[in-house]
């Protein structure tokens, strides 16, 4: 594998989404290529930053305490299969 091929797989490599043979080829390339090693480090850092930003962005995001009561009031008294309901003509 050359640098371009390896770099196109680095994200999948970090995600554990490459095949065993791809993993072996990437690791062999990384052991002798400082450019791709650096790219791997930068990518790894960026992914951590994205994870952290998402976690903090959603950390305060929780449903209101009356979410269920609001929902329950909207539920049909008797559940009708979705497709059957859609197929019914409006009156």
């Amino acid at each position: 594998m050359n640098c371009e091929q390896v770099q196109s797989l680095l994200n999948a490599y970090l995600d554990g989404e490459v095949t065993p043979s791809e993993r072996a080829l990437i690791q062999a390339h990384l052991s002798g290529c400082t450019v791709c090693q650096q790219e791997l480090d930068l990518l790894s850092t960026a992914r951590s930053q994205v994870r952290s930003a998402l976690q903090r962005g959603a950390s305060q995001a929780v449903p209101s305490q009356n979410a269920w009561s609001g929902l329950e009031a909207r539920l049909p008294k008797v559940r009708v299969p979705f497709l059957q309901e859609v197929a019914q003509p409006s009156s």
Partner: peptide, 29 residues
Amino acid sequence: YKTAYLMLGEATEAEDALQEIFVQVYKSL
């Protein structure tokens, strides 16, 4: 809720989404 919040970016929209999605879930379960 958290998925909707991250996708839509506003708590009020996430709250609306939670309601709409679970009404849909109820109907199509």
